[in-house]
Design a protein around this nucleic acid. Sequence first.
DNA 1: CGCAACATGTAAACGGTTACATGATTCA
DNA 2: TGAATCATGTAACCGTTTACATGTTGCG
Lengths: 185, 185
Amino acid sequence: MSLRHALLGLVGEQPASGYDLLRTFNTSLAHVWPATQSQVYSELNKLTDLGLLQVGAEGPRGRKEYALTASGQAELLRWLADVPAPKPHRNELLLRVFFLNRLTPHQARAFLQARMQHAEAYHQSLRQVELDIKDDTDALAVYGRLALEYGLRLSALERDWAQWSLEQLARIAATQAATEPPVTP
Amino acid sequence: MSLRHALLGLVGEQPASGYDLLRTFNTSLAHVWPATQSQVYSELNKLTDLGLLQVGAEGPRGRKEYALTASGQAELLRWLADVPAPKPHRNELLLRVFFLNRLTPHQARAFLQARMQHAEAYHQSLRQVELDIKDDTDALAVYGRLALEYGLRLSALERDWAQWSLEQLARIAATQAATEPPVTP
DNA sequence: CGCAACATGTAAACGGTTACATGATTCA
DNA sequence: TGAATCATGTAACCGTTTACATGTTGCG
């Protein structure tokens, strides 16, 4: 139930409305913890009912600015401090890889190539983010930069792994071609 | 809806019962696409209703051995062939990192150290898998080895990133200590 | 005989997605 | 005045988790 803690964390940084929070989910948190409008508003109401948040101020257009309560603060810290054993996360890429032998070699290569390109494109977009905040000490705090570095490394991993996989397939294809010479030489 | 395609893929490899499939989800697919008993059995029934699977044989204890139908095979291939734009996946690690500044430096370090150790332990367990299948050409097919390599690289990434992050924090702490000399020199 | 393993199912609750719905305010 | 933005909410549906529930077969 981490959406809950994301909201507590953001409101703890500074009081905000659902609309404000939604913008954060569509920008800084977009690649970390996506959330929909529907989800954010209903979770804010639940958190208020539970006494973890409170409406500190009301503005125009029914704007409700939420603030962290003492028990909300406590719950945030409790969540942050405990380090749960990481549970396996679903990985659609690897699931597809498991069944890649059902495709033709050409289709399998096309799949890996497409993934490689997606990863490279994402990597470059993160590189751009890195450049954009390079001289701005405040834009992303220390911990934000740690998260960015993780993204850079992960996208590089996916790109390089796809590249490596393509080489493995080529190597195996070459070996088989040598062992079983073609019908039409 | 990838559980569906995991089931089609597994049954396509060889006909199997829900119980058989469940064992696969608890072993080979455990770190790729976890699924519960409840989910597997109900999805098998849905797939049968949709005509993507059929009960090819019945055994003792009400055992139902499923087989892929022609449309099931078609659906599996359709799924494998299309390469969707990768959508961002939730990353609880990074969400926690975003709010790590709410903890004391000591707690933040403890968090990263724990993650580092988890990643290293997982990496070593995969290394062991690698050794176990090293001389067994059949145990894991070509594509299974690609998945294993991905796991090895990812766990190494998490370990190294946590290590690097700890160094960053130490470096920053040292800089601040130099700028703002301690109260008790 | 009794236990472990085999084998399948249902129901409630939860978190997330999609779509629908409404209205106020600002500013060009 | 009209459009963009601000602002909040609800309902239906889907995939997943947890818990409950039941019965059979093989084997030592």
